[in-house]
Amino acid sequence: MKMLAANRLSDGEAVWLAADGNWVDEISHAETVRDKDGEERLLAAGRDATGRNEVVDAELVDVEIIDGFIRPIRLRERIRAAGPSIHPELGKQAKKSAVTLA
């Protein structure tokens, strides 16, 4: 299972593509896909958004669903989704609704 991650051009904020085509700053709102067709669709949307200069470095990220929540497989992507593990008061994890690193 995959989702599409990128950084917003203007401020570098880590963002993910949602089903409505918007880029969201919490992975809980990201769209996940399970097959090649879905991946191609996400990548095409990423290319479009890159072309419109909304985001940079769009890439597919492996995820799983645990207890109904999206969890990136790699620690790197979990840290990206949460914020620096050493600074729980910074990054997305500082928001009450945000994911945690675990």
Binding site: A14, R52, N53, V56, R76, G83
Partner: peptide, 28 residues
């Protein structure tokens, strides 16, 4: 010019790096 879309990331990346601007996990 980058923010307005006049130049793309491939053109801009070497320019920003020459000025010490990297893109990391959470931000620039």
């Amino acid at each position: 010019r980058r923010l307005s879309g006049e130049i793309d990331e491939a053109q801009f990346k070497p320019l920003r790096l020459m000025n010490g601007v990297y893109l990391q996990l959470h931000a620039y």
